[in-house]
Each structure stands twice: as C-alpha cells, then as structure tokens.
Amino acid sequence: SEEWVEIALRLLELGREANINGTILNLHKEEIEELIRRLLKRI
C-alpha cells in the first residue's frame, strides 16, 4: 500500500490550507506531527 503517498498528499493539502488561511496550523499541529511520524517509520 502507498500509505506514504497519502500522508504526503495530506501534508501538502494542510500546507495549502495554511497559506490560504495564513494560519500557523495550530489546528492541525497534532495531525501533522502524527502524519510525519508515520511517514518517517516507512523510510
């Protein structure tokens, strides 16, 4: 399964939302940290 691709796409999506909203992603901080942890486990 290409889970890391899904994770990377989700991170990009959150990054785009952050640019549009001008936020520092506090809302998504925990989700982002969890996604990155899952991503690093696969490398």
Rank of each mutant, 00 (worst) to 15 (best):
L35F: 06
L25P: 09
A18D: 03
W4V: 07
T23N: 11
A8M: 13
L9R: 10
A18K: 04
I7D: 02
I7H: 01
V5I: 07
R37N: 02
E6I: 13
H28L: 15
R10H: 08
E2I: 14
S1W: 15
L9D: 02
I24G: 07
N26K: 03
R37M: 06
L9Q: 04
R38K: 05
R42K: 11
I20V: 09
E34K: 08
R38S: 04
N26S: 07
L35S: 01
I24C: 15
V5K: 05
E31S: 02
R38M: 10
L39R: 00
R16K: 06
V5S: 03
R42D: 03
I36E: 00
R10W: 13
R37E: 02
E17P: 06
E6L: 14
E31I: 11
V5Y: 10
E17K: 07
R37V: 04
K29A: 14
N26W: 15
I24W: 12
R10D: 02
R16A: 04
L14K: 01
L27N: 08
V5Q: 06
R42T: 10
G15D: 03
I24V: 04
G22M: 11
V5N: 02
R38H: 04
W4D: 01
N26I: 13
L9V: 05
L39H: 00
V5P: 02
E34V: 08
G22S: 07
L25H: 04
I32R: 01
L11V: 04
L14M: 03
E33S: 09
A8V: 14
E2V: 08
L12H: 02
L35Y: 04
L11D: 00
E3G: 12
G15V: 15
E33G: 04
E34G: 06
K29Q: 11
I7P: 00
A18Q: 05
V5T: 04
E30A: 08
L27W: 12
I24D: 12
N26Q: 12
L35H: 01
V5C: 15
L25R: 06
R37S: 03
E33Y: 13
A8P: 00
S1G: 10
E17L: 14
E17G: 06
E3A: 12
E2M: 12
L40S: 02
H28Q: 09
L25D: 06
L35N: 01
E3R: 13
I20T: 09
E17T: 10
E3S: 14
A18V: 11
L40A: 03
T23Y: 14
L14N: 01
L12P: 00
L39F: 08
E17N: 08
L14G: 01
K41Q: 08
L25E: 02
E34Q: 08
E3T: 11
I32D: 00
R37I: 07
E34R: 10
A8Y: 08
I32H: 00
E2N: 14
L9A: 04
E31M: 06
N19L: 15
E17Q: 10
I43F: 09
E34D: 11
I24L: 04
N19F: 15
L27I: 12
E34H: 08
E30H: 07
I7G: 02
T23A: 09
L11E: 00
S1H: 13
L11S: 00
E33W: 14
E33D: 09
H28N: 09
L40T: 01
R38A: 09
L35E: 01
N26D: 13
N21R: 10
L12A: 03
S1A: 10
E17V: 10
K29V: 15
I7N: 01
K41F: 10
L12I: 12
E33H: 08
N21F: 14
